[in-house]
Design a protein around this nucleic acid. Structure first.
Lengths: 179, 179
DNA sequence: TGATGCATGTAACTGGTTACATGATTTT
DNA sequence: AAAATCATGTAACCAGTTACATGCATCA
């Protein structure tokens, strides 16, 4: 196997069996806070994963009008996923359009630049608030061991939280510089 | 105009005229620390930018065997770039394969997980050291106004620096959790 | 009766990566 | 003599986005 999307799907199915529709819905919001996909990507990928015997689909009567297919992970799928998570990530740095804009911010009109930065700050503060609300929920629940699925949620949420805080700090510094 | 790559190129050319080859070289290392491209993307994009009169190319004798084309930004190009940098970024969250792996780390063999995390920590520490060396250089130079090209470098480097520190803190927390 | 949700697909297009191609000059 | 650098392109492929298509059930 190869594609990152495939592993994103395996990661979801490994937690509990799901239908293609449910997986498509889940991927509209970023999995682990940093991966999205559209349903037009999901359905063909599920076909590929099943062909490779990493997941198994069984037709069940759906809650909607049509029958639906519920996918479950196989032993092979679980092994493939467990192996993938510990292989080194590609060393290509992540792309950021946001940073690329700041690279050329020096030639923008200063008042427009300040407006733009204020808008980005607001956006990141909203996101931070969302993460903080989730974090509060998590803290009230029982602590999770590192071998429980919930650990993935806690760890990625913690990253999201500090990621947004760091972004906000930086934008605050930036808006200071433009004053 | 539209493509992000086009704006990355404009951002470089706005600082000083460059040849296609020089631009390809510059983009092998991420511009603003967060955007790369290969030469096979750069050359066609330069043709498009010139067709839109955002840049102007003049043939000059190159340092190598072939003649080369040196591109300079036009008034239109500068205006397009200045406008783009203050328009809101797409609200799609950035993708991160790294985070997606952590989302499923719970089902990995714990000792392999620890090894992987140690490797990622080392990678981020190396990157941080690189950024810190650059930051020291910048601090020794004269301070730059927000309307000077150097401001883009200083601001993006500052982001890179805190980004890596934040990543390192998070991985340290993570390796604590796995112990 | 019109919108929303359930449910699954295909097609066209865009952006990016990898590989292939060519050929002169300079350095080892 | 071979490798690296200069210099610029094309082609094939892969991943991801947007749009198109269908049709039933439920709710406002």
């Amino acid at each position: 196997m190869s594609s990152t999307l495939g592993y994103a799907l395996l990661g979801l199915i490994a937690r509990r069996p799901r239908t293609g529709y449910e997986l498509s819905q889940a991927l509209r919001v970023p999995v682990g806070y940093f991966w999205t996909a559209s349903h037009s990507q999901v359905y063909p990928e599920l076909v590929r994963l099943e062909a490779e015997r990493l997941i198994r689909g069984t037709v069940v009567p759906g809650p909607g009008p049509r029958d639906t297919k519920r996918y479950d992970i196989t032993a092979d799928g679980r092994a493939a996923l467990a192996e993938w998570v510990t292989t080194p990530v590609s060393d290509a740095p992540p792309r950021s359009e946001e940073l690329l804009k700041i690279y050329s911010i020096w030639l923008a009109d200063p008042s427009r630049a300040r407006t733009m930065i204020a808008a980005e700050l607001a956006r990141h503060r909203t996101q931070l608030a969302r993460y903080e609300a989730l974090a509060t929920e998590f803290e009230q629940a029982a602590p999770v061991a590192a071998t429980q699925p919930g650990f993935g949620d806690v760890a990625t949420l913690r990253y999201g939280l500090t990621y947004e805080r760091h972004f906000i700090d930086w934008y605050e510094w930036l808006s200071d510089q433009l004053r």
